[in-house]
Design a binder for these strands. Structure first.
Length: 884
DNA sequence: GTCGCTCCTGGAACC
DNA sequence: CAGGAGCGAC
C-alpha cells in the first residue's frame, strides 16, 4: 500500500499507485516501443516522423500528460499547436478527461484552461494578449482579425481598392493588366473580383513567407511584380492604420506574433518549457521562426508530422521544415534532435498499407545530383499492425465514365445491404477537386440506386434547396436588391439565383398560411422601423439637431416622442423609464449617447436575422428536416447539416455587420442590399462552403463527398477514390514568382507539382480502414495517373498480388464497420453542456449535435423567444413520435 | 503510325 | 476557352 492517501470524494486512493502504466491500463492503451519512447522522451529537440494511422495524437496526449503529471511542468508552460480546431479540441478534451482521472486518483488538480492548445493562428492571438510577453506584465492588444471573407470584402471596397491601385501606378485598365500578369497572358480578365482574388493570393503568400517588400523589389526585375509589391506595402499599412483599431489578416497575424516574440527579451527563455508542433510538414516560414523562437531557451521543441502528407505548399508551407529539421537544429542550436519514427499503422488493413506504400515508391524522391539525400524522410517503412491480409483494395472495371459510376454505386449499395457498413456516412468519396464532372456523375449514379449524398462544396452553397428556401423567405421580409443592368455575367447569375429563391419562398407561403402570415408580420415590423426612422430623422433635421450630438432628453425627448406617424413601439422605447435611466447613467460618466444612437435604438426591429432564421425553422417546411434527422429508421441529417451551416453564415453576418436591424439600415432597402447584394453575393462569387468545423461533419444517412484536403486527418471504413487523375501542370505562376524572392532553395521547381500530386493521392489512399475502392476510368479522353496505371496494370508487383476488380471481389472476408467512428471520447464541460442540457434538452441537442449558432441577441435582449420556438419544436416532435 | 474525336483539367484552408 | 492525351479507325 502507498504511504500517502488523499481524500477524493468518498474514496481513498493511494497516490503512488497512479503511474503512467496504471493510467494506460485504465485507458486500454498499450503503446509500442517507439510510442513509449516518444512519450517518455523529456528534454531536447525531438523529431517524430509519423506515418498514417500511427496513433500520433495519442502519443502527443500522453507525452503532454507525462510532462504535466510526472515532470512538474505547469500546463501553461506547454505550447501545443495542431493544424485544425477539431484536432485541438480532441487534444484538449482528451487531456481534460485524462487529467481528471489523475486528479481523482491523487487529488492534485490541474488547470488545463490556461494551456496553449490550438491552431497556430488561435495561439498567435493568445500570444499577442499574453502578459508574460509584455513589459510590466500588461495585457497586450491584438489587432482585429479579418477572416478571409472579411479580408476580401475589405480589399474590394471601391475606394480603398482604387486608392491602392493608384499606389501601384495602375490606371483604367488595372484589372485586365493585373489579371493578365497572373494568368501569363497579354490581356487578362477585366473582372475586379478576379483581380482582387489574384492579389490576395499573392499578398497572403508573401505574408506567409515573411517576404519584406523592399528586399523583394531589389531581387526582381519584373516591373509588374514591383508595382504589386508597392500595393502590398500599402495594403499592410492601411490595414494597420485605417479605422480606430489596427486590423490584420490570417497571414499577417503570424508576423505580428513573431515581431512580439523577437522584441520580448524573455520570449526565447522559459515562458514555455515545451513546444510541441503537430502536422509540422504543413508549417511555413513564419511559423518555423515562431517555434524556434519559443523554444530557444530550453530547446524542447518536439515536431510531429508526415512529409508524405504535405498538402499546403500553395499557402506557403514548406515540407523541408520537417524533412530538414535535423540540419536546422544543428545550424540554429548546434545539436541533433532525437528521431523516433512512428511507423506502425493501426488504422488500415494490411493490403491498403502495402498499396499506398507501393504507390509512393513509384516516384523517385532522390535529390538531383550533385545534391545527395532525398526530398523525403526515407527511414520510415510503414508497417501495418493489422494481420488481416485479405483483399482490401479493389478497382472498378476499367471503363467509361457512366459504367464506372454505375458499377461503384451498385457496389456501395451492396456493402450497405450486406451490413459491411451500417450507415452511408461510413463510405467517403474523395476527389482532388469537387468541381470535376466525375463528381456530378457519381452523385447521380448513387442517387439513381436510391442513395443520398452530402456535398455542400460541390457547387455553390447557396444553391442548396434548404438554403434557397430560407433565404427566399428572407427576401420576402427584407426585400431583395434590384437587378442592376451594369455588371457582368456573374451578377446576372446571382440575380437568377435570387429569382429562384423568391419563387421557392412564394410557393412555400402559398402552401402554408401560417408561414405567410408570419412573414407578412415581420415585413410589417421592417416597414414600421423604416418609417419610424424617417419620422424621427425628420424631427431632428427640422430642429437642426446633428445625429452625432449628445442626446439631451430634457430638450429632445418630447419633440421626438410627438413625431407624427411614429409607431407605438418606438414611442414606448423612447419613453421607457428603463431607457431614461440608461441615458442618465451614460451622461453621468461623461459618455452621453449620441442622438443617432438613440434613434437607432428606438427604431430597431426587435429581432435579428438569426432570430428570424430560428423562427422560420419552426414552420412545417423546415421542421420536416429536423424530423427526418431523427426518425428511427433511415434517418437523414443532410438538410439539417446544411441549415446548421447556414445558421453559421447568418450568425457571422449578424455579428459583424448587422447586430441590430435599425430603422436607418432599413432605409431604401439598405438591409436587403447589405445582406444580399453584399454578403450573399460575395458568398456566391466565391462559391463559399467553408465552416465545416462541425463536430461531426458527416450527417447520418448521406454519403459524404470530400476533397482530399478536407479528408486530411480523417478516416473512414470505406474510401472511394473517385478520380485517379490529376494533371501535372508544372509549378504555378505564384510559385515561380515567389521563389526568387526567398532565401531558401526548396524542392526543385520542375518537380514540385509531381511531388504534390503524389502526396495528395497518398493522403487519399491512407484514409481507408477496411476497404479502398478505386474508380478506374478508361476510354476516349479518360486517363489515370502513371503510378496508378503501373499498379493496376498487368504483372505489376503490388505486394499480395494484383488488385481485384469489383465484379470479382469477394466481400465475405471484409470486416463490418462498427456504428461509431472516433476513438477518443469527447468530454463535456459542466457549464457549457450540463447546464445547457438541463435548461432545454431539445435546444441542447440541436446546438451541440449540429453546431447551430444560437441566437444570442435574442436570448440576451428579448428573453425566451428562441427558447419557446425550440420548445414548440420539441413538443411537436414528441407528439409526432407518439402518433405512428 | 497517325488522324480526328472525345473528354478532362484549370485545388485546397487556417477563425 | 485552350491544351493535352488516350483511344479507335484507318
Amino acid at each position: 500500500m502507498g504511504t500517502t492517501t488523499r481524500k477524493v470524494g468518498a474514496t481513498f486512493m493511494p497516490s503512488s499507485q497512479c503511474t503512467l502504466e496504471t493510467l494506460w491500463a485504465d485507458a486500454g492503451f498499450s503503446p509500442n516501443a517507439a510510442q513509449r519512447q516518444a512519450i517518455l522522451h523529456a528534454d531536447g529537440p525531438l523529431f517524430l516522423p509519423a506515418g498514417p494511422g500511427s496513433g500520433k495524437t495519442r502519443v502527443l496526449l500522453w507525452r503532454t500528460l507525462n510532462l504535466i503529471v510526472f515532470h512538474g511542468v505547469a500546463p501553461e508552460q506547454i505550447y501545443l499547436s495542431t493544424f485544425t480546431e477539431k484536432a485541438a479540441r480532441q487534444l484538449k478534451d482528451g487531456l481534460r478527461a485524462l487529467l481528471g482521472q489523475v486528479t481523482a486518483a491523487t487529488g492534485v488538480p490541474y488547470d488545463t484552461g490556461r494551456m496553449y492548445v490550438g491552431t497556430v493562428h488561435s495561439l498567435c492571438q493568445r500570444l499577442l494578449l499574453d502578459r508574460r510577453f509584455h513589459p510590466d506584465r500588461d495585457r497586450g492588444t491584438a489587432p482585429a482579425l479579418l477572416d478571409d471573407l472579411d479580408q476580401y470584402l475589405w480589399l474590394a471596397r471601391s475606394r480603398a481598392w482604387r486608392e491602392l491601385l493608384t499606389v501601384g501606378g495602375f490606371g483604367e485598365d488595372a484589372h485586365a493588366e493585373i489579371n493578365g500578369w497572373f494568368e501569363d497572358k497579354p490581356e487578362g480578365s477585366a473582372s475586379k473580383h478576379v483581380a482582387v482574388t489574384n492579389c490576395l493570393s499573392l499578398f497572403n503568400r508573401l505574408s506567409e513567407e515573411c517576404v519584406v517588400p523592399v528586399d523583394a523589389m531589389r531581387r526582381t526585375d519584373d516591373p509588374m511584380l514591383v508595382r504589386l509589391l508597392r500595393v502590398y506595402t500599402a495594403y499592410r499599412e492601411r490595414l494597420e492604420t485605417e479605422g480606430a483599431t489596427a486590423q490584420t489578416d490570417f497571414s499577417l497575424l503570424q508576423q505580428h506574433a513573431l515581431r512580439l516574440l523577437e522584441g520580448a527579451p524573455n520570449a526565447g527563455g522559459d515562458v514555455f518549457r515545451h513546444v510541441v508542433i503537430d502536422e509540422y510538414q504543413d508549417t511555413n516560414a513564419v511559423q518555423e521562426r515562431i517555434f524556434f523562437r519559443l523554444a530557444a531557451g530550453t530547446r524542447n521543441l518536439c515536431v510531429v508530422g508526415d512529409d508524405d502528407q504535405a498538402l499546403y505548399r500553395f499557402r506557403g508551407a514548406t515540407v523541408e521544415n520537417f524533412v530538414e529539421f535535423a540540419p536546422r537544429c544543428q545550424a540554429k542550436w548546434g545539436c541533433t534532435p532525437t528521431a523516433i519514427p512512428l511507423v506502425t499503422n493501426y488504422r488500415s488493413r494490411r493490403r491498403i498499407v502495402d498499396f499506398y506504400g507501393a504507390f509512393v515508391d513509384r516516384c523517385d524522391w532522390a535529390k538531383t545530383p550533385p545534391a545527395s539525400g532525398h526530398h523525403r524522410v526515407v527511414d520510415k517503412q510503414i508497417e501495418a499492425h493489422s494481420t488481416d491480409a485479405g483483399p482490401a483494395v479493389v478497382a472498378s472495371t476499367p471503363g467509361t465514365a457512366g459504367d464506372v459510376c454505375a458499377e461503384v454505386a451498385q457496389f456501395v449499395q451492396r456493402l450497405l445491404r450486406e451490413g459491411k457498413v451500417t450507415d452511408p456516412n461510413q463510405v467517403a468519396f474523395l476527389y482532388p477537386s469537387l468541381k470535376s464532372p466525375h463528381v456530378q456523375r457519381q452523385m447521380a449514379a448513387l442517387e439513381a440506386v436510391g442513395l443520398r449524398v452530402y456535398a455542400p462544396r460541390a457547387r455553390s452553397f447557396l444553391d442548396g434547396d434548404e438554403v434557397t428556401a430560407m433565404l427566399g423567405l428572407f427576401t420576402r421580409v427584407l426585400g431583395r436588391p434590384p437587378r442592376g443592368d451594369f455588371r457582368g455575367m456573374e451578377y446576372a447569375g446571382f440575380h437568377d439565383w435570387l429569382d429562384r429563391a423568391e419563387d421557392v419562398a412564394e410557393r412555400l407561403c402559398d402552401g402554408d398560411p401560417a408561414l405567410a402570415a408570419f412573414v407578412n408580420d415581420r415585413r410589417d415590423d421592417v416597414e414600421t422601423a423604416r418609417d419610424d426612422w424617417r419620422w424621427l430623422a425628420a424631427v431632428a433635421t427640422e430642429r437642426g439637431w446633428a445625429l452625432d450630438a449628445p442626446y439631451d432628453a430634457a430638450m429632445m425627448k418630447r419633440a421626438l416622442h410627438g413625431a407624427a406617424g411614429l409607431s407605438g413601439k418606438a414611442k414606448r422605447t423612447l419613453g421607457s423609464a428603463y431607457f431614461d435611466r440608461l441615458v442618465r447613467e451614460r451622461a453621468a460618466v461623461g459618455r452621453p449617447y449620441p442622438l443617432g444612437y438613440v434613434l437607432k435604438r428606438a427604431t430597431s426591429v426587435e429581432w435579428s436575422l438569426l432570430d428570424l432564421f430560428w423562427r422560420l425553422c419552426g414552420f412545417d417546411h423546415f421542421r420536416a428536416m429536423f424530423d427526418a434527422a431523427h426518425r428511427p429508421t433511415d434517418p437523414d441529417e443532410g438538410p439539417v447539416s446544411t441549415l446548421s451551416l447556414l445558421s453559421q453564415y447568418v450568425g457571422r453576418f449578424v455579428d459583424r455587420r448587422a447586430p441590430l436591424l435599425t430603422g436607418e439600415l432599413l432605409q431604401d432597402g439598405g438591409a436587403g442590399r447589405l445582406f444580399f447584394a453584399s454578403y450573399c453575393y460575395a458568398l456566391f462569387r466565391r462559391g463559399e462552403g467553408e465552416y465545416e468545423d462541425a463536430e461531426d461533419p458527416f450527417p447520418k444517412g448521406r454519403i459524404p463527398f470530400l476533397t482530399v484536403h478536407q479528408a486530411k486527418g480523417l478516416e473512414f471504413p470505406v474510401v472511394v477514390l473517385g478520380n485517379l487523375r490529376k494533371d501535372d501542370k508544372g509549378p504555378t505562376h505564384l510559385e515561380k514568382t515567389v521563389r526568387p524572392l526567398l532565401d531558401r532553395d526548396g524542392e526543385p521547381l520542375t518537380r514540385v507539382a509531381e511531388f504534390d500530386i503524389m502526396r495528395m493521392f497518398y493522403v487519399a489512399l491512407s484514409r481507408a480502414k477496411h476497404l479502398l475502392v478505386l474508380a478506374h476510368y478508361k476510354g476516349a479522353g479518360q486517363r489515370i495517373n502513371k503510378p496508378f496505371a503501373d499498379l493496376l496494370g498487368p504483372g505489376t508487383a503490388v505486394p499480395g498480388g494484383a488488385v481485384p476488380r469489383i465484379p470479382a471481389f469477394d466481400t465475405r472476408p471484409l470486416p463490418a464497420a462498427g456504428p461509431d467512428g472516433d476513438a477518443l471520447p469527447r468530454s463535456y464541460s459542466y457549464t457549457a453542456d450540463y447546464l445547457h442540457y438541463q435548461r432545454c434538452p431539445r435546444q441542447y441537442m440541436i446546438f451541440r449535435e449540429y453546431d447551430f449558432v444560437p441566437s444570442r441577441s435574442q436570448t440576451m435582449l428579448f428573453g425566451t423567444l428562441v427558447h419557446r420556438t425550440m420548445d414548440d419544436l420539441h413538443q411537436w416532435l414528441i407528439a409526432r413520435r407518439q402518433t405512428p
